[in-house]
Design a protein around this nucleic acid. Structure first.
Lengths: 156, 156
DNA sequence: CCATGAAATCCCATGTTATCCCATATTGGG
DNA sequence: CCCAATATGGGATAACATGGGATTTCATGG
């Protein structure tokens, strides 16, 4: 599970250290690295491990093969994504176009969101989350009522 | 899993370098190469490894033997497909008719879409995906809601 | 059956850049 | 305070994409 928010340096070669606990999340041995793609929902990158990509693929496979919406999702995620391997220091080299898409300038903020994470420029993220606590408070009942509805959830 | 979008040169002999990570996807030892066919959904080629062809075959086998639609799919994919081996540099030689079908002119864009990939001319693909981000945004809830429905996902 | 020509396949070489390797600085926990 | 883990920076090497030529294979015609 991707948790926490961390800001690391993006060096002159385009390398950035992926937070070590994120690395642990995706490290299942088959592929040591992450998958990133430009979000279609804003100026940031989205990412995860191959397991997330498999989940998305399974989800897409339940839709009609050439359904327009499906194809759009598939292109926006799979065709746009980049598979980035870790170097010995746990860094990945961000392709220039991805760094530019997210407006990254020497620093990158990793935002853990459970199954996936996001990468923002620190300043963009700062202004994006300006009101996140107020919004969260306004929507807190949605979390609670979902738990009630699935009444047998139990504690993990 | 085929991921990313890469554009490589198509040389005077019709050879094009298949992106190395695509090569890794199909490299199960039995056959070092790809299978391509002209898409019936547009001016591009579709492709994958032998494993994909087996999946399609298994899927077709669940249909009635002489079902008209089945036969059409079978002909459009299997009868039209070409099995292309990699040379020592990981290239395949595109048959002229396939290159012409996709309007390829010196360059070919490989589009990874998970289980299969597509090959487009760069200009065609560029104009085709003009609105893909908007369409993906409009359809994003389809991806999310499917995950909710499969409620046993569990955290790592 | 044999000869020939065209196409497919194989082989070699080169330049660029992605990946690998090593070292140092910083940080957090015992 | 010390040590181990993590983040950071620089240089070297290997892999990948590209181009050209040689050899082998296959199809065709006599």
């Amino acid at each position: 599970m991707f948790l926490s928010t961390t800001t690391n340096n993006l060096d002159a070669k385009g390398r950035v250290s992926v937070p070590s606990d994120f690395r642990a999340v995706v490290g299942d041995g088959a592929f040591d690295g992450i998958v990133l793609w430009p979000s279609f929902d804003g100026d940031y990158l989205e990412g995860g491990g191959l397991a997330l990509m498999q989940e998305y693929l399974d989800s897409l496979e339940t839709m009609d093969h050439y359904d327009e919406g499906r194809m759009a999702l598939q292109r926006a995620i799979f065709a746009e994504s980049r598979k980035l391997s870790f170097d010995s220091g746990g860094r990945v080299t961000l392709p220039k176009d991805l760094a530019e898409y997210a407006g990254l300038n020497g620093r990158a903020t990793f935002v853990g969101l459970g199954r996936r994470f996001e990468i923002w420029s620190p300043e963009s993220y700062e202004s994006h989350i300006g009101d996140v606590r107020r919004l969260a408070r306004e929507n807190r009942n949605r979390l609670i009522s979902l738990r009630r509805r699935n009444g047998s959830e139990g504690a993990r």
